[in-house]
Design a protein around this nucleic acid. Structure first.
Length: 476
DNA sequence: AAAAAAC
């Protein structure tokens, strides 16, 4: 089997050969001839199946005829996240190296100016996330009336993210006569409805999911205490003791936990970057780039990285938190064990997570083995700072973005050196510490018969000024 | 229960 019989142009075939590919994947084999025949395609496939090239290659061939007009893109590709959009752009650059096509990326978080200049020059391929695309159309800088081919990628994820109304709006802005390529990993009823509405007599192309949860990935569960610092310690041991660890993605459920864990890992001298949706776009790009190139070993990420991201050679996935939705588990661990390689996925489980684990095991239809807790690899290992904490000349500001532990809620993925900050886990949840109440306030626990919360603030917030405890007369 | 995406 080769690419030669699919009907692709010589320019495209040359680029494919130059990229080192010789045989099409099943989805490429099945979809490309139909795309070239200008049929609508409903592709049921996940990332890792070669889905992107299945539309990029025939699009390049088709676009060799004709020219783009100002502000009227010839083709439009919709992606749910900025990273996926950028990934598709890279694919066009790679396979379009023998073409002179204008490709524009319309995503949020970057300036309008450059995007607008490109649109004015005329683009053959427009790759966009829905929000920024609609923004451009509303400003009048973009007309979708010339779109000959529309690609809706990762449709089920768009649904999860609430993008379907946007997608419906966009579909109404492009000509009825366009060709539509629609890709989804699953077919929930809402997606089925959309396909009936927007596809005309589509060819259905379905490929089995790549070996994700089965043979390619070794899965395991590891017990941990519930406190974040317990989990961080378990994670560090897992990373240090992992066999054949080349690089790893660590997933957290929340963005701020991504930021905290990232800083903690840096403090412990791990080579790590963070990726989540509250980081500015250039930091997101840099982080992903450094991880892809192998400049850093660990990517700490939210679920923005769980689906679709193509990083072919991730040896380990660690779930710092058990994902709330079992589907997310499958997507997360699917970042490893790709492209015929094997991978390891280890999930840190606390006593609060057993229901979520049961839901995951039910979904994947098998139980996941419990691995023994990793032994301490260094007796001195604990969650304290690896060097004495030097306080800066100014006390850390306790503003909106600064938490009790002195860490900042989001550093935009920049690597902060370890000095000068207090340890994120140094005190977190270690139980009550000796109180030194200011003379004029009464300890809260004296005032109320309630033990201090584990995670209660250490300082003034833990005390109630005495005057507040005096009885107050309220007139009825 | 959270994340993602527009200024």
């Amino acid at each position: 089997m080769s690419f030669a019989h699919l009907g692709l142009s010589q320019k495209v075939l040359d680029a494919v050969t130059a990229a080192g590919y010789s045989a099409p994947t099943p989805i490429q084999d099945q979809a490309i001839p139909h795309v070239l025949a200008r049929r609508d395609v409903l592709g049921i496939a996940q990332t890792g199946t070669g889905k992107t090239a299945a539309f990029v290659l025939p699009m390049l061939t088709t676009l060799e005829q004709g020219r783009a007009r100002a502000r009227m893109p010839r083709t439009l590709i919709l992606e749910p996240t900025r990273e996926l959009a950028a990934q598709v752009e890279e694919s066009f650059i790679k396979y379009g190296k023998n073409h002179k096509l204008n490709v524009a990326l319309l995503i949020g978080g970057v300036s309008f100016g450059n995007q607008d200049t490109k649109l004015t020059r005329g683009v053959d391929v427009l790759i966009a996330t829905p929000g920024r695309l609609l923004d451009h159309t509303e400003r009048g800088g973009l007309l979708l009336t010339g779109v000959e081919l529309l690609v809706i990628d990762e449709a089920d994820r768009m649904l999860d993210m609430g993008f379907i109304p946007d997608i419906e709006r966009i579909c109404k802005l492009v000509p009825f006569t366009r060709q539509t390529l629609f890709f989804t990993a699953t077919m929930p009823p809402e997606i089925r409805r959309i396909t009936e509405q927007f596809l005309h007599n589509p060819v259905k192309v379905e490929v089995s999911r790549p070996a994700t949860t089965v043979e390619a990935i070794t899965q395991g569960l590891v017990k941990s205490g519930r406190e974040p610092h317990d989990k961080r310690e378990v994670l560090r041991r897992l990373i240090r003791q992992a066999e054949g660890l080349k690089n790893a993605i660590v997933f957290c459920n929340r963005k701020r936990d991504v930021a905290t864990l990232h800083r903690s890992l840096l403090r412990h001298k791990f080579s790590a970057v963070a990726l989540h949706g509250d980081m500015d776009q250039s930091s997101r790009m840099t982080a992903l780039d450094q991880f892809r190139k192998g400049d850093v070993t660990v990517l700490v990420a939210s679920d923005v990285a769980a689906r679709g991201l193509d990083i072919p050679d991730v040896s380990h996935v660690f779930n710092f938190d058990v994902p709330h939705h079992p589907d997310d588990y499958v997507h997360r661990i699917g970042r490893t064990g790709r492209a015929g390689r094997t991978g390891t996925a280890i999930t840190i489980v606390t006593s609060a997570d057993h229901k979520a684990v049961a839901a995951i095991e039910k979904l994947i239809g098998r139980s996941i083995a419990w691995l023994g807790a990793p032994p301490a690899d260094d007796p001195a290992e604990d969650d304290r700072p690896s060097e004495p904490v030097r306080m800066g000349t100014r006390a850390p500001r306790r503003g909106r973005d600064t938490r009790r532990d002195g860490t900042v809620a989001d550093v935009g993925g920049r690597s902060e050196p370890s000095g000068g900050r207090t340890d994120a886990g140094g005190r977190a949840g270690r139980g009550p510490r000796a109180k030194t109440a200011p003379a004029n306030v009464m300890p809260l626990e004296t005032a109320r018969k309630r033990p201090p919360r584990d995670d209660a603030p250490d300082d003034i917030e833990n005390y109630l000024p005495a005057f507040l405890l005096r009885p107050v007369r309220v007139k009825a």
